[in-house]
Design a protein around this nucleic acid. Structure first.
Lengths: 234, 234
DNA sequence: GACAACGAAATTGGCGACAATATTGCCGAT
DNA sequence: ATCGGCAATATTGTCGCCAATTTCGTTGTC
């Protein structure tokens, strides 16, 4: 018995978020439901209901919920089921502090690695952001914002940091969205974004890290200001 | 009712870590096996074998494996089973870069929050490290090293960063251990640790962050030097 | 002798059923 | 009317079984 054969040569992967099998697609569906707001925070996620809804078996839902628990999107209690995890404002701030560090790292690495075509692409995103702010397209700006951050992450080549950031983004998407709807917010964050793009384009690692930190520091300040009550849920 | 040996063997784990249910304790056992080196990298983890070994059902092992996959400790391939994930040197370096940022954050926050008793505790750990290095107790020094980093994490009050760091630590424990056995290594890292303790003790956030970054930068350098071949597995 | 096709063994994936536990509604006593 | 105990329900936890897939050994053919 046992088969302790080792030494297979698997190419290293990036711990990204590709789904596996049927259970994975169920997890993706539930994740989508949570991030899109269809499933509200603290809402109970009953296994039988979800299995009926997605037309799969209960065990598929079960393993999906287990996976999402690890990702920090759902909470489970012994014999009491799963529910959508509500991240408090304090947690959202903590997440932003981690982002400040990790995206700072990614920005520095990106500044070190980008070629001309790539920095031109970033500048194009910056131009689009500027135009969208001018047009008052808040939703479009929010999308471009996410795109810019993701692109910088990708350009950094930091798979570990990227995986961590992707998970944290899923957890705090609700706070992010709420913040993006705040009037006057784009006017503050736009120049910060442009500064990041400039620093990366001129291959200035330190400036890129500093600019990214400044930007996320500003996000933290805005988060605290919007809900000064403290650890309220959202 | 055939030989339905249920409830067979559990309850011997009073494990302090708040694992959930039987499946959780199985996950803890497998995790222990991986981090302790009992299960080698790339070694196959056959569900039936593990269930026999731990006296639990195959589904418990199955869900445990799923959880460990999310934690980044095992890899799974469709219809081909699970195996212990081998983290390459490149990945270990990436992990250290993330640690550099996140532990830097924790050090800064710790410097901001510690009271006198806590900083005295840190200084005591520093004294112990110094003594252990003098005695040539490499293993004891490695333990004290982990304790110091963990304690700083705890003092920082940063739960999000702490959770990320804990997961990354489990992934890179093998590289960490290998590095600690390197001759001359303690002599290099000891003063770095003492500098961190000093900075936190004097409530100097910036200095604490800088000292922690310097320390982990040195760890990265040592990692690269020990295995200059590149992305070899360990 | 090498190679391809075939078949048997091993292993995982998924499903339904049953047991354990928590929650809810109900009833009676104070 | 309220509170505590008790039964009914709802939901999760766990198990064994069977199908699907991969892997490995065998055999036949060129």
């Amino acid at each position: 018995m046992v088969a302790t054969n080792r030494g297979g040569s698997r190419s290293q992967h990036t711990a990204g978020s590709r789904e596996r099998g049927a259970g994975g697609s169920v997890a993706a569906a539930i994740r989508e439901g949570i991030t899109s707001g269809e499933f509200a925070p603290e809402q109970r996620l009953v296994e039988a209901d979800l299995s009926a809804r997605f037309g799969t078996s209960r065990s598929a839902v079960r393993s999906a919920l287990l996976q999402l628990t690890e990702e920090g999107l759902v909470e489970r209690e012994q014999n009491r089921g799963a529910r959508v995890r509500a991240v408090s404002l304090d947690e959202a701030v903590e997440i932003c502090e981690v982002r400040m560090m990790l995206e700072g790292l990614c920005a520095a690495k990106a500044a070190e690695r980008v070629d001309d075509a790539q920095s031109a692409e970033l500048r194009e995103i910056g131009d689009r952001m500027q135009r969208l702010v001018g047009e008052g397209d808040v939703l479009g700006y929010s999308e471009a914002n996410q795109l810019l951050h993701r692109r910088i992450r990708e350009l950094s080549g930091q798979h570990t940091a990227g995986a961590v950031l992707e998970r944290l983004r899923a957890q705090s998407v609700r706070h992010q969205f709420r913040l993006s709807l705040q009037p006057g917010r784009p006017g503050v964050s736009l120049p910060e974004h442009l500064a990041i793009i400039d620093a990366i384009g001129s291959h200035d690692c330190e400036a890129a890290e500093r600019a990214m930190r400044t930007h996320l520091g500003s996000v933290i300040g805005a988060l605290k200001e919007v809900t000064p009550g403290g650890g309220l849920r959202v």
